[in-house]
């Protein structure tokens, strides 16, 4: 008597397979997530580099402009401009100066000096401040 040794059906162990599929899926997902994060990191790093470089550029430009301003407004440059007639010194009339301390013209030369708000430097310590407007 012949016996059919084959089984009539092959059972698929869904639970077992599903378990593996989930594991593989999770591992794959984790891998993709890792790659995504890595890409994000690089993208952010790139942005960071660009921001840093533009910041540095702006700082450098700022410093260059400051140096330019400083050289254009320096005493030496202004003196040259004055000598060349590009700018002129305008005398301020005495009546246009508001004095907080009395003017102290020189005895002989009569030069009018700039106003000083520090009476002690002008008259020595202990002198009360006098406010005179002219």
């Amino acid at each position: 008597m012949s016996v059919n040794r084959r089984r009539t059906t092959n059972t698929i162990e869904v639970n077992f397979l599903a378990g593996w599929l989930v594991i593989v899926f999770l591992v794959g997902l984790a891998g993709l997530f890792f790659v995504y994060l890595k890409n994000q990191q690089h993208a952010v790093g790139n942005q960071c580099r660009l921001v840093e470089s533009s910041l540095r550029e702006e700082e450098a430009r700022d410093e260059a402009l400051k140096a330019k301003i400083s050289s254009m407004t320096s005493r030496g440059a202004l003196q040259h401009r004055l000598d060349d007639g590009y700018i002129a010194l305008q005398a301020i009339r005495d009546t246009a100066i508001a004095r907080v301390t009395p003017p102290a013209p020189a005895e002989v030369d009569g030069v009018l000096r700039t106003a000083s708000s520090d009476p002690e430097s002008r008259f020595g310590p202990g002198v009360p401040q006098r406010a005179i407007n002219r």
Binding site: E63, A67, T73, G76, A77
Partner: peptide, 13 residues
């Protein structure tokens, strides 16, 4: 490579 040059705004002074 970043660097800088020295500037003397007052020139000869």
């Amino acid at each position: 490579q970043e660097g800088s040059v020295r500037s003397y705004p007052n020139g000869e002074m």
